[in-house]
């Protein structure tokens, strides 16, 4: 464990909690892409199946359970409890254009052709593009609530910090996982445009435009 990975995980946890609390407190999921949240639930489910097969550490197990629990709770709030506030018209990204290529790629390029490993690879590839429906929805509505931008900032920051974690691990442990690194770079690049707008902050006053 290193400082980049720990702060990355905490940033990820913060993003998940921020979103869940925002929806719960405001009793509304306006401006939130339910499709992205479903993709994240799939990402955690397919990646953390090893909860059933191996124990790494209490931290690892607790975080995985929290991530999965919050992901499904968020999907439940969006599609069940507060479904009346779900903005389906603007959440129109064709996720099949993400899931199918990612599924095919995970069967073709992986570390080991075993079910668990292919599902892990699928999860890594899917996570790198899972935010696209959300970014697409914001570009269509032309605006994002402030709290939603904080959610996206923390979410984007987490994988950027993981990139530093992989540099650290390569240098100090000689460890590197090319699949996770390439997907992590793609995932972080997708946030660059958003990061620029978020940091310049100028756009807070007027609606966020991609």
């Amino acid at each position: 464990m290193n400082v980049f990975r720990l702060t990355g995980d905490l940033s990820h946890l913060a993003a998940i909690i921020i979103l869940l609390l925002k929806i719960w407190k405001s009793r509304s999921c306006a401006g939130i892409s339910g499709k992205s949240q479903i993709l994240f639930a799939i990402v955690f489910t397919t990646r953390y199946l090893d909860l059933l097969t191996s124990f790494i550490s209490l931290y690892n197990t607790c975080m995985k359970v929290i991530y999965i629990g919050c992901a499904y709770a968020t999907v439940y709030l969006i599609y069940a409890k507060f479904r009346a506030t779900y903005d389906g018209n603007h959440d129109s990204f064709r996720v099949e254009f993400l899931v199918v290529p990612v599924g095919g790629l995970s069967v073709l390029i992986n570390h080991d052709f075993s079910p668990l490993e292919i599902l892990w690879t699928f999860s890594i590839y899917l996570e790198s593009v899972a935010i696209l429906p959300q970014l697409f929805m914001i570009s269509k509505t032309g605006e994002a609530e402030t709290i939603t931008t904080h959610y996206l900032f923390c979410l984007g920051l987490y994988r950027a910090l993981y990139l530093f974690n992989w540099i650290w691990r390569f240098y100090f442990e000689g460890f590197f996982d090319m699949i996770a690194i390439v997907a992590g770079v793609v995932q972080t690049v997708l946030y660059c445009d958003f990061f620029y707008l978020y940091v310049t902050k100028g756009w807070f006053s007027r609606p966020y435009r991609l």
Binding site: R5, D9, D50, I56, K64, H111, W120, D177
Partner: peptide
């Protein structure tokens, strides 16, 4: 294939 170390990252 090299034996895959279990994925220890979240």
């Amino acid at each position: 294939d090299i034996e895959r170390a279990q994925h220890d990252e979240l």
